[in-house]
């Protein structure tokens, strides 16, 4: 038993070490690649223009990234979140994928079991994306007319709504009262202030806060009932 605990301690310590090293290495490669490609092409980046562009466009994404880090890290656990932030596509794939896997095996948040399931799920999802994209790039010429056909265009433009429809059903039926309130409030907000649709990823915060507050009230109520 003690050996198993030691193993787990070591596993978590090494997960953080590995995660940090992989993140830093990927970051260095991604920032270095434009310079390397620039050398191949014979013209490196214009650093002044890049700095100006960063101030105008980058800061918005900085705020969004902080929100993503704070919200998604607890959902994914250590290994899953390192991988997810390296491989991207969080909202439209990694988060729902990990949540789906967690539900399917009945793992509880914050447990070692969830840490492992989440890591397995995100790693699998990332490898599938890498494989699909690699195959797609290799077969780009024959695939291009199919994927860009006007008939199929609405299908690929609605992958995320289709994903949230299916996941929404699964979660809403578990607790319809908890789900109804944020859904109604968010719908009203987006109807009354349509400009907010451009900031949907930021609206996850108030929506999530409402749902968590309701879940907390329900939790407290059950606790009191349990004690009575």
């Amino acid at each position: 038993m003690e050996k198993r605990e030691e193993y787990l301690e070591r596993y978590m310590r090494n997960t953080h070490r590995l995660g940090r090293a992989a993140s830093l290495a990927t970051l260095a490669m991604l920032l270095g690649a434009p310079f390397l490609i620039g050398t191949v092409l014979g013209a490196g980046p214009d650093l002044g223009a890049a700095a100006r562009g960063f101030l105008s466009a980058g800061l918005v994404w900085t705020v969004s990234s902080v929100v993503e880090f704070l919200v998604y890290t607890p959902m994914l656990g250590a290994g899953g979140s390192y991988l997810a932030f390296i491989t991207g596509n969080l909202i439209n794939m990694k988060i729902p994928c990990a949540i789906n896997a967690k539900d399917m095996v009945g793992a509880k948040s914050g447990t070692r079991e969830n840490e492992i399931i989440s890591t397995l799920s995100i790693a699998t999802s990332s490898l599938v994306t890498i494989a699909v994209l690699a195959a797609g790039v290799a077969l780009l010429t024959p695939l291009r007319p199919v994927l860009q056909s006007e008939v199929l265009a609405p299908a690929f433009a609605n992958v995320v709504p289709a994903l949230f429809g299916a996941m929404g059903y699964r979660y809403y039926r578990q607790n319809i009262r908890l789900a109804a309130v944020p859904l109604i409030i968010m719908s009203l907000l987006f109807i009354l202030m349509p400009g907010l649709t451009g900031s949907t990823s930021m609206m996850i915060i108030p929506s999530g806060a409402i749902a968590i507050a309701l879940a907390w009230m329900e939790y407290r109520k059950h606790q009191k009932e349990g004690r009575a």
Binding site: E5, L8, V71, P74, M75, I91, I95, I99, K108, S109, G110, T111, R112, E113, I116, V160, P161, F164, G165, M167, G168, Y171, Y172, Q174, N175, L178, A179, P182, L183, I185, M186, S187, L188, L189, F190, L196, T197, T200, M203, I204, S207, G208, A209, I210, A211, I212, L214, A215, W216, E218, Y219
Partner: peptide, 29 residues
């Protein structure tokens, strides 16, 4: 936490609620 340990408490419910909030924000949009 130990493997498979039921954490109990509010953590798991909070994560599910956060996900419900996320889906609600998108469906609302």
């Amino acid at each position: 936490r130990k493997a498979g340990e039921k954490k109990g408490g509010f953590g798991d419910a909070a994560m599910s609620a956060m996900f419900i909030g996320m889906v609600s924000a998108y469906l609302g949009s």
